[in-house]
């Protein structure tokens, strides 16, 4: 009995440590997906909440972070399908200490990302922000490498043609 209690404590501490170490990184990916600080927080916490009951088992078998990321992306796509959680355009970004140029750049990037289909947006975030390989990206999204390649290419074409980013570059 006492052994069970100890395992529980170790598990909780490990989970706390994981969240403390990786929580912000997960939030940044979530922000690129949602374009909104609150929704990003909700997305991260929902994913963590879903994964917490499986923490011990998944940690013992492999990377818990990969598991959380996959859950986060599947939750993101599930929210998208549930229409009501669609993105709401906002001109207000939450960081008060940000200079105007940064805000403009963020707004432009979010505007450009918002024009992409959800899957392409996810591919861009996974490949170019989270630096996952094509295979890892395919694993997270539950698709083939071929799909990752073609959708990445298509997303790049769209981003290069994006008026928001083009004007920013100019």
């Amino acid at each position: 009995m006492s052994g069970t209690v100890v395992v529980q404590h170790v598990s909780t501490a490990d989970f706390d440590a994981f969240v403390a170490e990786r929580g912000d990184a997960l939030w940044r990916s979530a922000w690129l997906l949602t374009g909104d600080a609150h929704r990003a927080e909700d997305l991260v916490q929902t994913a963590l909440g879903k994964c917490w009951p499986k923490f011990e088992r998944v940690s013992a078998n492999g990377s818990f972070e990969a598991y959380v990321r996959r859950t986060m992306f599947t939750t993101y796509t599930a929210w998208w399908r549930r229409r009501w959680n669609g993105e709401v355009a906002t001109a207000t970004l939450p960081e008060s200490a940000t200079v105007a140029a940064d805000v403009d750049a963020r707004t432009d990037l979010i505007s450009a990302l918002a024009t992409l289909p959800k899957g392409q947006r996810a591919v861009v975030v996974l490949r170019y922000f989270d630096d996952l390989t094509e295979q890892q990206t395919a694993d997270v999204l539950g698709c083939t490498i071929g799909t990752v390649k073609s959708q990445t290419a298509r997303a790049l074409v769209a981003l290069r043609a994006s008026r928001a980013l083009t004007e920013e570059d100019a």
């Binding site: 909780t12 994981f18 929580g23 690129l32 916490q45 939450p94 750049a105 861009v124």
Partner: peptide, 25 residues
Amino acid sequence: LRQLLTDAVPEASPAGDRAEAARTW
């Protein structure tokens, strides 16, 4: 594009105890 994404993402707001929030959820 990598640099643009990295530069654009804001710092995460103070999020309190995410781990405890996840267990509560």
